[in-house]
């Protein structure tokens, strides 16, 4: 049953995520943490951190990781958990596959389609809201445990926003800051 749910959830994530990986986060969080409770919000934050440090799109990374963890936490064997990560990763790509094949057929017509364009006047601001929601959802007591957390948050924000520090470097620095501050 959980395998079917996993498949269905990631089909939905693949089908309804517009505006890139970050906009996808609130959708993943809504399904995986709120609705099905496969992982905790803290674990979810850790997955995002790991995705930032490893190559590849966040959508694939989270599908692989959560597919594994959801099955593993449900008490199944490691082999089945690997199966879970295959299912989630496959499912998140499946809608793209079908859509691309359909659209390749009508390629030139889709490109300047005014309906598509109009839909995007609504989708663009909404996806900004989706990213903002992902940030707001993660600003909670599990992730911000004391004043040091706010210090790290402030420093990370200024370094990436003002000084354009690379996210990977930022993650490494934050890890070191955690080791030092919580010694």
């Amino acid at each position: 049953m959980i395998f079917l749910q996993l498949f269905w959830v990631y089909i939905k994530i693949g089908l309804f995520s517009f505006g890139g990986g970050y906009a996808m986060l609130s959708l993943i969080q809504n399904e995986v943490v709120d609705k099905y409770k496969w992982i905790s919000l803290q674990e979810f934050t850790d997955v995002v951190a790991i995705s930032q440090m490893t190559p590849g799109p966040i959508g694939i990374n989270s599908a692989t990781y959560i597919g594994y963890t959801a099955i593993h936490n449900a008490g199944y064997s490691t082999g089945l958990a690997i199966g879970g990560s295959c299912i989630a990763t496959f499912a998140v790509c499946l809608p793209s596959f079908i859509l691309v094949l359909i659209i390749s057929y009508y390629f030139s017509r889709f490109k300047q389609n005014r309906y598509v364009e109009s839909a995007f006047t609504g989708l663009r601001p909404a996806s900004v809201g989706l990213i903002a929601a992902a940030a707001l959802l993660l600003m909670n007591h599990e992730n911000f445990i004391d004043y040091k957390s706010f210090l790290i948050f402030g420093a990370a924000f200024i370094l990436t926003w003002k000084f354009k520090l690379h996210p990977v470097l930022m993650i490494f620095l934050a890890g070191i800051a955690g080791l030092v501050l919580y010694w």
Partner: peptide, 17 residues
Amino acid sequence: IFKGLRPAVVALIVVPC
């Protein structure tokens, strides 16, 4: 390490927003 990472992750989402 992860106590340090978690708030930074939030900052890393605020910036692309």
